[in-house]
Write a protein that binds this DNA or RNA. Structure first.
Length: 815
RNA sequence: GCCGUGGUGGCGGAAUUGGUAGACGCGCUGGAUUUAGGAUCCAGUCUCCUCCGGAGGUGCAGGUUCGAUUCCUGUCCGCGGCACCA
């Protein structure tokens, strides 16, 4: 009995070989077609790699290796998204500087990733915390600033007193901080914002140009949330001002029986009547105390207060009461709505609660029971101007919308408008461990951007990183760094102490890989033209919206400025599903179901881990880990090894002279076909199962023709590269197989002389039989009828129909 | 609530221009080998029945069809995202 596959020797041996020979270096500019295949780079956490990381990395690695063998010039890089809160929190707790902790974490991640044998071009490794990298992150910020896309604003932010910092919405879960679970309150603060809303339409439209999963595109569309409608002006005689509302249903203007303002609306103060002042103020206070979440939580029951004042409905002169309620958000539209209770569910609920009139203007529903919101089924009624000169009665709502907008525009009472759910991007963080924002502030609140030549603006080394407690970044503690004196004028400036969010570095890293050592530019135009766009981008679905939207936004800005040549950065996208614990739950330390890839590599080797992660099921789906399952793959690897390699380390069961027989040729070429097609479709699990089938076939042969085994080795190599390289060397080759031609199949060998047909009677399977693939329809029917099991079922019955599906089945319909 | 996505043996999963449901792997059962265990190898393994033959079966209920995991209608459940967006 031969030994087990000695992965402890073989895997490090080939990893070293690939390193020393720079086997996977991507060459800029080549006659070969290019293929840029990218992984979402990891945040190197202190916990190290978990088995979820290698899932996507293995998929891209298999494809990268496959594409090299298909003759492509492949760019497949890896790097580190290394800024972020955890290292800063760690520094605050332990006093260890984030740069030190980050370097350690990166070293661990790199060792772990390298132990899996991925074919990255390590010469292009990047690190977002490297000043040579973030110099260019800052440079892009200056471009955004020059274009007027970066601005400062007082905005209410999620202030977490315990962390002494402001959190992004995505870092707040259930009103508590994601890290630590501390309470979070809203507090207005001066912040940097990026005007992503200026690109809303293009971010939406260009989704049509990329090959992404529909679900991700849909999520981005929903996030952008474009809706068409009209802004309509309502006059308020008491204060002689008008309030503009946004509505998607201008057709229902005649049914607007009241108006609602957000409690924070600036006109609330002036239009509230003295009698209502008290009630309004107390409602405003209540609403102000609630976080957004509380407001939506308590939304089941509508609340609100009458301001005492009225507005004039512009279409019919009707006097309608103005209320305030927190179901109207200041942050969307104009912070004011016209309420049409008959045709809007929220308005309906509010009107019922406060006994406000409900007026039907679209017939077809039953407004005594519920709001009728259909815009295709239904007919406009009660909708004409008092003088009768304009009417939409009798129209479908969808037509009435268009007509009403035209009329509003002609009358100067409103205008067609588009609203987005998307908000501008809150871009500053009150943190130390991030890219410094390269601007100076003057005494009089002026902002002066740094010159390109002043970049990078590096982080000062702080002896101790601690929150200022005021909400400012710990950088504010670096007094000498903050104070800048102009040597010529002697003027004193204050540096910006906010830093950029973690998203910043990941918004353009795919460009830095193209030209990682360039210190004159972020990347060269020629290299960008050669390599972009990213042909395939693989990562977790948790980045479906934010990272991908932010990166697309930056890319479009760079496109407008002429720095990149493609409208979209990522042509194709695949989201890998998460790997669950053996118990089917999400892996987490608290559940104790975490699998450490180091343990798996030690016990089974990298080839087994790689193949198991691919064999578990379709890449996109969530799948539970199974220790028994990985042993099955380990057996497969060992069966290959033991059958073909003797205990003396020499090949066996092979023949140089024997030609493959018909069956072996069919199996080998069928496998080439199946594996190739599966790789094109990213169906790694079925490709591996086909390799198993071929290996099972080999093991039924005493002697396997060498040429057949060589093909098997090449087909196996993207999946289990260490094992394949070793076999390739044993087969007598003195160079890596990484650039061997991918095997081609010949249809000739796939033709079967005899085929097995199924025979059904009334659609039920009754028997099967073998017949020449060339047999005529008549022969097939005759033979089928002659089968004992068939004649039994058709005897004495009338055959109504005889169906022959070529190469598949025969079906008799009898009665 | 809305949007997206999925539901197939004991388990992971395979098969959709509609054509033999359960490939491959795990687990399980039996056998070989072994002092024994492990490892390895061979065979079997959707369920049920009156078992050389039948019946049922892809979340559930219907429909279209000679034939449905695949198409259509309704419905239930899991997962992900959004959540008063006017």
């Amino acid at each position: 009995m031969a030994d087990k596959y000695p992965h402890h020797q073989i895997e490090p041996k080939w990893q070293q070989y690939w390193d020393e020979n720079k086997t996977f270096r991507a060459v800029d500019f080549s006659e070969k077609p290019k293929y840029y295949i990218l992984d979402m780079f990891p945040y190197p956490s202190g916990a190290g790699l978990h088995v979820g990381h290698p899932e996507g990395y293995t998929a891209t690695d298999i494809l990268a290796r496959y594409m090299r063998m298909r003759g492509y010039n492949v760019l497949h890089p890896m790097g580190w998204d290394a800024f972020g809160l955890p290292a800063e929190q760690y520094a605050i707790e332990t006093g260890v500087h984030p740069s030190k902790k980050t370097a350690e974490n990166i070293a661990t991640f790199k060792r772990q990733i390298k132990s899996l044998g991925f074919s990255y071009d390590w010469d292009r490794e990047i690190n977002t915390t490297d000043e040579k990298y973030y110099k260019w992150t800052q440079w892009i910020f200056l471009k955004l600033f020059e274009k007027g896309l970066a601005y400062e604003a007082e905005v209410p932010v999620n202030w977490c007193p315990a962390l002494g910092t402001v959190l992004a919405n995505e870092e707040v879960i259930d009103g508590k901080s994601e890290r630590g679970g501390h309470p979070v309150v809203r507090k207005p603060m001066r912040q940097w914002m990026l005007k992503i809303t200026a690109y809303a339409d293009r971010l939406l439209e260009d989704l049509d140009e990329v090959e992404w999963p529909d679900s991700i595109k849909e999520m981005q569309r929903n996030w952008i949330g474009r809706s068409e409608g009209a802004n309509v002006h309502f006059h308020i005689p008491a204060i002689d001002k008008s309030i503009t509302v946004f509505t998607t249903r201008p057709d229902t203007l005649w049914g607007a029986t009241y108006m609602v303002l957000a409690p924070e609306h600036p006109l609330v103060e002036s239009l509230t009547t003295p009698e209502q002042k008290e009630a309004v103020r107390s409602y405003q206070n209540q609403a102000g105390l609630k976080s957004d979440l509380d407001r939506t939580d308590l939304a089941k029951e509508k609340t609100g207060v009458f301001t005492g004042n009225h507005a004039i409905n512009p279409v019919n002169g009707g006097k309608i009461p103005i209320w305030i309620s927190d179901y109207v958000l200041m942050s969307y539209g104009t912070g004011a709505i016209m309420a049409v209770p008959a045709h809007d569910e929220r308005d309906y609920a509010f009107a019922k609660k406060f006994d406000l009139p409900i007026l039907e203007v679209v017939s077809g529903g039953n407004i005594s029971r519920e709001a009728f919101t259909e815009i295709e089924d239904g007919v406009m009624v009660n909708s004409a101007t008092p003088d009768g000169r304009f009417s939409i009665n009798g129209l479908k709502p969808s037509q009435a919308i268009v007509k009403t907008i035209q009329w509003l525009e002609n009358e100067g009472k409103g205008k067609g408008a588009v609203q987005y759910r998307l908000r501008d991007w809150l871009f500053s963080r009150q943190r130390y461990w991030g890219e410094p924002i390269p601007v100076l502030h003057t005494d009089d609140d002026g902002v002066i951007p740094l010159n390109d030549s002043d970049l990078p603006l590096t982080l000062p080394v702080l002896e101790k990183i601690k929150p200022t407690g005021t909400g400012e970044s710990p950088l504010a503690n670096a007094k000498e760094w903050v104070r800048v004196v102009d040597p010529e004028s002697g003027k004193v400036y204050r540096r910006e102490t906010n830093t950029m969010p973690q998203w910043a570095g990941s918004c353009w890293y795919y460009l830095r890989y193209l030209d990682p050592d360039n210190d004159k530019k972020g990347w060269s135009a020629e290299k960008e033209k050669y390599w972009m766009p990213v042909d395939l981008y693989v990562g977790g679905a948790e980045h479906a919206v934010l990272h991908l939207l932010y990166a697309r936004f930056w890319h479009k800005v760079l496109y407008d400025l002429g720095y990149v040549s493609t409208k979209e950065p990522f042509q194709r996208l695949i989201n890998q599903g998460i790997i669950l614990g053996e118990d089917g739950d999400k892996m987490s330390k608290s559940r104790g179901n975490v699998i450490n890839p180091d343990d798996v590599v030690r016990e089974y080797g990298a080839d087994t881990l790689r193949m198991y992660e691919m064999f578990m099921g379709p890449l996109e789906r969530a799948k539970p880990w199974s220790t028994k399952g990985i042993e099955g793959i380990f057996r497969f690897v060992n069966r290959i090894w033991r059958y073909f390699v003797s205990e003396h380390g020499e090949l066996q069961h092979l023949s140089d002279v024997m030609a493959p027989n018909e069956e072996t040729l069919r199996q080998v070429h069928g496998t080439i076909k199946k594996v190739t097609e599966d790789l094109e479709n990213k169906s790694f699990n079925t490709a591996i199962s086909q390799l198993m089938i071929l290996n099972n076939h080999f093991r039924t042969l005493d002697t396997v023709p060498r040429e057949s085994f060589e093909i098997f080795t090449l087909l196996l190599s993207p999946f289990a590269p260490h094992l394949a390289e070793e076999l390739w060397q044993l087969l007598g080759h003195d160079q890596t197989l990484a650039y061997e031609d991918w095997p081609k199949y010949d249809e000739v060998y796939l033709i079967e002389n005899t085929i097995r047909l199924a025979v059904q009677v009334n659609g039920k399977l009754r028997d099967t039989f073998d017949i020449s693939s060339e047999a005529s329809k008549a022969d097939i029917l005759a033979k089928a009828k002659s089968l004992e099991k068939i004649s039994r079922h058709i005897k004495g019955k009338a055959i109504l129909k005889e169906i022959v599906v070529p190469k598949k089945l025969v079906n008799f319909v009898v009665k």
